[in-house]
Design a protein around this nucleic acid. Structure first.
Lengths: 145, 145
DNA sequence: TTCTTTGCAAATCGTTTGCAGCATG
DNA sequence: CATGCTGCAAACGATTTGCAAAGAA
């Protein structure tokens, strides 16, 4: 996803119809680095379009994933997280508070192989599971209490 | 998970009780490179212990994950897959048939950083999404039909 | 007009939980 | 004999589906 206008144009070519709901969904998602879930995104969207349904958000997100415009992954909390950033990068997933933060990859790690044997690779998801600094501090205090 | 006996000893030390069910579950999982789900593992286990419940399989698997003896991840099919191989490696996930295959990592990629900024890394999950050779062939035939 | 999208309600399904009886250490 | 485990049935919750009305192209 580069600019929202470009995205809309690409989707129109695919036969998609551009509704006000989708423009809002795409716009808000494009500027979101928090790896939102359908629900968390829906909550923010409703502040602008109170009538917007969760079903519509799911439909729009699924279409974007299918079109290869965004990526979805699950990080241990039982919900799907959506990421508009398609560049190879790692996700720092805190196993305690379930926060997700992007981390850049070293140049040699950022190269996604196009083939592994006879398997054709399109995209990658790299999850680094661990503890964020806040949770590490919290656990240390618990332990010493 | 190295040998099942070692695993049982470690779990006993943690206060766990070793039941016939768990011995079977651990044994079958340790020799399984198919990234089974709780259900698929349960199906195979029932061939040996017909009375074994799915709930028990979930309980055993969750304990192993919590103990850090196995790893769980979701690969796009809405189910959790369990992997007894803790060594860093990539999973080739076919987006069409949902098959999962292990792929070795190049030595420099197999190094899991212990820290990224002030985030403490314990484990990693690397998913490579794409098409297996069978599905690539199938899609090509569909396309030309 | 045609075909997608919307949004409500209901269904789906993997996983978890409550609880009583049982077996391990 | 204390505590963890088993397994049934019921609950849960994120996501999907059916369908009729609305709205892009």
């Amino acid at each position: 996803v580069r600019s929202v206008d470009e995205l809309l144009a690409r989707l129109r070519e695919r036969g998609g119809k551009i509704t006000p709901q989708r423009v809002l969904i795409y716009t808000m998602l494009a500027g979101d680095r928090t790896h939102p879930t359908a629900e968390s995104l829906h909550r923010r969207l409703q502040e602008v379009l109170p009538h917007l349904s969760l079903t519509t958000v799911y439909a729009a997100l699924n279409d974007l994933v299918t079109a290869g415009e965004i990526r979805a992954f699950e990080a241990g909390d039982g919900q799907l997280h959506y990421d508009p950033d398609l560049r190879p990068h790692a996700e720092l997933v805190c196993v305690r508070c379930h926060s997700i933060t992007d981390a850049p990859l070293a140049p040699e790690e950022a190269v996604v192989p196009e083939r592994v044997g006879d398997f054709e690779v399109f995209a990658q998801t790299l999850l680094l599971h661990g503890l964020c600094s806040a949770c590490r501090t919290a656990l240390a205090e618990e332990g010493s209490a």
